[in-house]
Design a protein around this nucleic acid. Structure first.
Length: 135
DNA sequence: GCCAACGTTGGC
DNA sequence: GCCAACGTTGGC
């Protein structure tokens, strides 16, 4: 099983929305690197849900519940999506600032490639963030 | 195939 | 709201 981090601006899709709706299409990705990461997701993989722009913190965990398929919102047919399902909220959201201040997390793409919206997370990074979140 | 122009993302 | 970083588009 693999771990990921996916971003959303709360003004378009927030963690509260995710908690309420439980399952959603993770559509709208229009970047090839992010798409390639989506393609590699398998059912059961876990993802951190990160609020970009407003909040700038990891809010909780979702699980991949449908693998890569066409994104109906993309008329070009080049991009796809997965479905994700609410799993759990972090007791304490983990902020970008905390991540930047944590030695083990310096290699996270969140820091190195701030514009990438779907990125892999190494198991040790995953565990480290869980500890920061008091999960 | 190069690169200038343009559009978007996201931190500050 | 600004702008740096980055990705995409299109003329040549």
């Amino acid at each position: 099983m693999a771990y990921w981090l996916i971003k959303s601006e709360p003004s378009s899709w927030s963690w509260d929305d995710q908690v309420r709706k439980k399952i959603t299409h993770w559509d709208g990705v229009r970047n090839y690197q992010a798409r390639n990461n989506l393609k590699q997701m398998k059912i059961g993989d876990l993802c951190f849900f990160y609020h970009s722009v407003v909040g700038k913190q990891i809010m909780g965990i979702v699980k991949v519940c449908a693998s890569y398929k066409d994104d109906p919102t993309d008329s070009s047919g080049k991009f796809g999506m997965v479905d994700v399902e609410y799993v759990e909220s972090l007791e304490k959201p983990v902020t970008l600032e905390q991540i930047k201040n944590t030695k083990e997390l310096q290699d996270l793409a969140l820091i190195k490639q701030s514009r990438l919206s779907v990125m892999p997370v190494m198991p040790q990074q995953w565990a480290c963030i869980l500890r920061l979140g008091n999960y």
